[in-house]
Design a protein around this nucleic acid. Structure first.
Lengths: 128, 128
DNA sequence: CAGCATCCTCGAGGATACTG
DNA sequence: CAGTATCCTCGAGGATGCTG
């Protein structure tokens, strides 16, 4: 996989590889939800589990592991009992917050219209 | 259910339902790729297939069908032979373009760093 | 509390072939 | 050219139980 078909005149962007690559990482709903949830500050595992609510413990573990690996989230374990672990966005992760929030806001602003379109999409879809 | 966004003061956003819902639709990589590809103007089925390149014909069909149902993409079939069908973003779909592009640009700007972090994520991930 | 490990299901998605 | 139909695989992801 490589270049996209260069279209005449249009401001073409090299979206082939990088976007796909990154999307495979942060493109899944859990990652985006977690990032959005962490934007306010550090949270513990349990807090995240409650905040995202709907995510399984396994998925939260995996998602966090990936995000930490990618350097989007920092994990801090406090060696005490009971164990406490906090997750927070790194600088890199924070640069993603505005995009995630924009997406979230778009979703909230338009999900009704989308639902409406989906129900009877023979009337006037797409024309707000 | 026209939820307002209390983004100022209380840094808590009602992201539970709507975001998840919309993410399930446009959150998959194919939808985002297709939307991004269509931003320059109408494209025919075959052009899209070539432009996205990596997408299977089946997935393109399904993705387009969903996007049309959601009112993000308009389908125009010209009754002629050989058949010609063009897809283009609706008004609603166009409002999503800036976000998609922002995501694409973020991806291209940071995928190297992410890859670096993933390889040896004990060095300087995130930017501590 | 935080988090691996295991089993199992279910549907996203690719390959292929056919049609209008 | 623009799909539709069918089969089949593979891995995302939930449920459950155990450990540090």
């Amino acid at each position: 996989m490589a270049k996209v078909t260069p279209k005449s005149g249009g401001p073409r962007i090299r979206e082939g590889g990088a976007v796909r690559e990154v999307m495979d990482r942060i493109g899944d709903k859990w990652s985006l939800l977690v990032i959005g949830t962490l934007r306010a500050g550090p949270l513990r595992f349990g807090e995240l589990e409650a905040a995202v609510a709907g995510i399984s413990q396994r998925m939260l573990t995996l998602t966090l592991k990936h995000l930490v690996e990618d350097g989007l989230v920092a994990r801090t374990a406090y060696a005490e009992v009971p164990p406490r672990v906090e997750y927070e966005l790194t600088e890199l992760g924070r640069t993603l917050v505005p995009l995630v929030m924009a997406l979230a806001e778009w979703a909230m602003a338009n999900h009704e219209q989308i639902n409406a379109n989906r129900s009877g999409h023979a009337s006037g879809e797409g024309r707000p």
